[in-house]
Simulated assay, not measured.
Amino acid sequence: MPAVSFQNVSKTYASARGELQALKGVSFDIQPGEFFGLLGPNGAGKTTLISVLAGLVRASGGRVLVQGHDVQSDYAAARRALGVVPQELVFDPFFNVREALRFQSGYFGIHHNDDWIDELLQGLGLTDKAGANMRQLSGGMKRRVLVAQALVHKPPVIVLDEPTAGVDVELRQTLWQFISQLNKQGSTVLLTTHYLEEAEALCGRIAMLQLGRVVALEKTSDLLRQASSNVLRFKTDQALPPELAAQARVTGRVVQLPAHNAIEVEQWLARAREAGVVAEDVEIRKADLEDVFIEVMERASGQVQEATP
């Protein structure tokens, strides 16, 4: 039995411009013990899908099951099996950290949970903040508390919706170390993130959404093997000529160009020299998940445009 099963899930919102279809027949299963990534650009439907899973939004069609429990008809059992870390920093300003975790335990009917709470506080680097009021915590510390609240009832399925957005490197490392340990112990993890290097390092399988549809669903290793090219990477202070700029991904001084072979590498560098572009720190690397993601999204966009009359 899958840990999570999305079965032809659709969601339509009413708007001033008419109906907006946020999800269009999304179907896939997440197996017990998987570390699964859900990726997509802003507006792809990721948060809507997570909201349907968590019972915050009712699907217009289809079913979502958590360990066999329907999130609508058997919502109590489905929600007990889930621990959801939301994007937004939501907290009660009247309690300290330990009190907040005790109250969260009480929501699930769990009493005398201090041993597990202590383990969460230690694992997430919150031990010295246990008596601090939630209002006194930094944004990163508040996010750690949200993770602890999601895990306080020991859910078999953990949902992380952009858990490291805007947090420091230390929190990322602490969080992933703790979550990876739970995953090795059998917990199922569903992660949405815009940090694709995290998804590449952590997720064994990935689904990519665009405009409410699944456009890729494969093992991470298989996605990387399907990358159509290597990448030429260099730094420059000059503006690229139009023919290079049209093909390049530019971040500050860093330029990245797809290169299928050595001949293409030479051609790109020759065109740069002809245009007076000085290339520094030149290197060729294997395509990573970000390259694959961009390729999949561009291909899916092309297919949508071809299908549009």
Rank of each mutant, 00 (worst) to 15 (best):
A227R: 04
G109K: 07
Q238S: 10
E88M: 04
L223T: 06
Q267V: 10
Q67S: 05
P163Y: 07
G37Y: 06
A199R: 01
E200W: 11
V26F: 03
E19M: 01
E34I: 02
Y107F: 15
P242M: 05
V152S: 02
S138H: 07
S15A: 09
A3E: 10
S5G: 07
P242T: 04
F91I: 01
M297Y: 04
V277N: 14
L257Y: 15
A300G: 08
L89V: 15
Q31S: 03
K184L: 01
S51Q: 13
A246K: 14
V169Y: 12
G83V: 04
V97A: 13
L20G: 01
Q7R: 15
Y75D: 13
F35Y: 12
E19K: 08
M208L: 15
V4I: 13
N183Q: 05
F108N: 02
L244F: 04
V145A: 09
K129E: 08
Q303T: 04
W176Y: 10
K184F: 00
R17Y: 01
P86T: 06
L121P: 12
L196T: 00
L65H: 03
Q256I: 00
Q149V: 05
G62E: 04
L101Q: 01
V84C: 05
F28T: 12
H112V: 00
E280R: 14
Q7L: 15
A44H: 04
V145R: 05
I294M: 09
I263S: 11
P242I: 05
R271G: 00
